[in-house]
Nucleic acid binder design. Structure first.
Length: 222
DNA sequence: TGCCAGGCCGGGT
DNA sequence: ACCCGGCATGGC
């Protein structure tokens, strides 16, 4: 039997309460872990279903090859699979990177500031039209690279909130996203920190086959 | 050692 | 509208 769908909306104060609890527990997470918006974009694609350590390894390979710019990476497209090999699914991700790079260079000259001029909803549609960029990847790019007010949902978010019976695990991505966006102040920094804190909590306490332990800082707190 | 990691796509039902 | 197999490496 599947979990009951929560019928009442999650009150805004609950979401803020959880945020404060996480922030008080873990402190600022300084996300996204990348030095430039472009590096963040690359990382968002490479981290799909992949441990972040492997992604860092891959990004460092690109850096050491001095190819961490849209144009240079696109020109060296044949080297991409080998460079990003540690991040897994490397042939697939090489294709995805190339598709994104072509889009980025052709439409915005590979310049973040030009891309960021466009409205968030238009950008989201554009990103989602690229094969290999789904909702979480698009939203990560929008929030962390382009500083747009979009709340990123990931497996940890879904798992944490469903285990605490605040949402149905199978609720659609955008439905979960809108719960956060509608019940929180529309602030970039809040969206940034909240998602990062959820990943932090998830990594330490909410892995796939490990039930939430009673030392989880959120356990029985709301 | 098997399971997992900050998904996504395409084909089948 | 779901459901599933495939994609791949490295850490524990």
């Amino acid at each position: 039997m599947s979990q009951k769908i929560r019928k009442k909306k999650i009150p805004s104060r609950d979401l803020l309460k959880i945020y404060k609890l996480l922030y008080d527990t873990f402190g600022p997470q300084h996300w996204w872990p990348g030095e430039t918006p472009f590096e963040i974009m690359i990382g968002a694609i490479l981290t799909q279903n992949t441990n972040w350590n492997n992604v860092e390894w891959a990004i460092n390979n690109i850096k050491q090859a001095r190819l961490l710019t849209p144009e240079s990476l696109l020109k060296a497209r044949k080297r991409i699979p080998l460079l990003i090999r540690p991040s897994g699914f490397y042939r697939l991700k090489a294709q995805r990177l190339i598709e994104f790079l072509e889009y980025f260079v052709e439409n915005y000259q590979g310049r973040v500031e030009l891309m960021a001029k466009k409205g968030v909803q238009d950008l989201r549609k554009e990103l989602l039209s690229i094969s290999g960029i789904g909702k979480e990847t698009a939203d990560s790019i929008l929030l962390y690279a382009l500083k747009k007010p979009i709340f990123v949902i990931d497996a940890y978010t879904r798992r944490i909130f469903s285990r605490h019976k605040l949402i149905d695990y199978n609720l659609a991505y955008d439905d979960i996203r809108l719960i956060f966006e509608k019940n929180l102040p529309r602030r970039i920094q809040l969206f940034n920190e909240y998602h990062a804190l959820l990943v932090r909590l998830g990594k330490e306490y909410c892995k796939k086959n490990v039930p939430l332990c009673n030392t989880c800082p959120v356990h029985n707190k709301f």
